[in-house]
Write a protein that binds this DNA or RNA. Sequence first.
DNA 1: TATAATTTTTAGATTTGCCTAAATTTAATT
DNA 2: AATTAAATTTAGGCAAATCTAAAAATTATA
Lengths: 215, 215
Amino acid sequence: MTFSEENYLKTIYHLTWVSDADISTNAIAEKMETKASSVTDMLKKLSEKDLVNYIKYQGVSLTDKGKLAAKMIVRKHRLWECFLVEKLEFSWDEVHDIAEQLEHIKSEKLINKLDDFLGNPTEDPHGDPIPDANGRIIKVEKQLLSEFEKNQIGICVGVKDTSSDFLKYLDKQEIALGSQIEIIEKESFDSSFRIRVGTKELTVSNKIASNIYIK
Amino acid sequence: MTFSEENYLKTIYHLTWVSDADISTNAIAEKMETKASSVTDMLKKLSEKDLVNYIKYQGVSLTDKGKLAAKMIVRKHRLWECFLVEKLEFSWDEVHDIAEQLEHIKSEKLINKLDDFLGNPTEDPHGDPIPDANGRIIKVEKQLLSEFEKNQIGICVGVKDTSSDFLKYLDKQEIALGSQIEIIEKESFDSSFRIRVGTKELTVSNKIASNIYIK
DNA sequence: TATAATTTTTAGATTTGCCTAAATTTAATT
DNA sequence: AATTAAATTTAGGCAAATCTAAAAATTATA
């Protein structure tokens, strides 16, 4: 499987994760910052290989084979992120681009040994689940901070947006995985939140609150 | 730089290491298992980029820029090999193919952090030197076992052939980096050697002895 | 030193992945 | 329901890296 094929599968997998319905050509093109016509070409190719179910003009979904392949790429991506953060001391906002490259390294033995070396983690540095060698995923039920109500307390267990900018913002506010977060006040006007993180109080916009997962 | 460009630079670097003179198109084609015409195409391209000195029909050599680039690839390859053997417990005959992939990962920060994580090793699992971040190499003077004389004693510090077959043979004979090797007898008829490795005695052909480095 | 053999380069194709522009299909709106 | 708008696909091209076959240059040999 080529890098490009892998990237398409991964993108379709991620889009499926959030929307569930069949994925449109444009949605893929937008996410991959490429043109719809390029996507069409690739969908034909992936369809030939039985990695996706593709009907012209109707959108696309992963076959079982495609879904497993996608999960294995995600597995590699997230394990490498763990490696970078836990062993090489990268910060969580630096690892994505490097993991984008490492996820294409082809060796089952390598990834399984890496998994063991890291102590078989179930989540990556952003709180996202890591598929096991069979593609199984442990789902943790979690809510967005924005869905919380006044006086509720939870622990930060993940982030939705994993962009470097957002992660750096969280670092600045000293919000990390494991941080306790308490809703002090919910401002009805702009849906912003007054929260307590550890001992500090701060105000976050609804956009921020919509990208933090709490349990 | 593309993977292919990197592979060509690396190959030219390795060929230079052994022969010193300008490298021929055919030598590159043979080593890379490709066609001479493909090599010509790439040499033009590398020449455009000032990575090689190329004169039609006359062979090729690396420019300073090309040599540094090649060294950085070798550095990555060998550091990853160290990682695979020392951290992930791969055996020394398994790491080459995986390192061939990992050597193309682009991130200076990654490779320098990996270097530190491994304790800044100066040699890879086959005894080959690892260039530092500036491309400097610590050369260790070493001899081939085949050049040794009767009653001489040395330590195995490297191997010339790093093929899986040869390395597995060495494992079987319990010859590893650091093993003490003593020449008991040199057979003039076929230039084979009777040697002692640790406490065991064995006979090795001249071909074997010509691929083991001793100090 | 001619001629043969070898090496190297050029010319022209192929594949992959991408693009633009035009055509087609589907969805939305009047 | 007809027309407009949007999404999608097709058609045709381009660049990278490879190949085969033919041409050119170099080297070896008679």
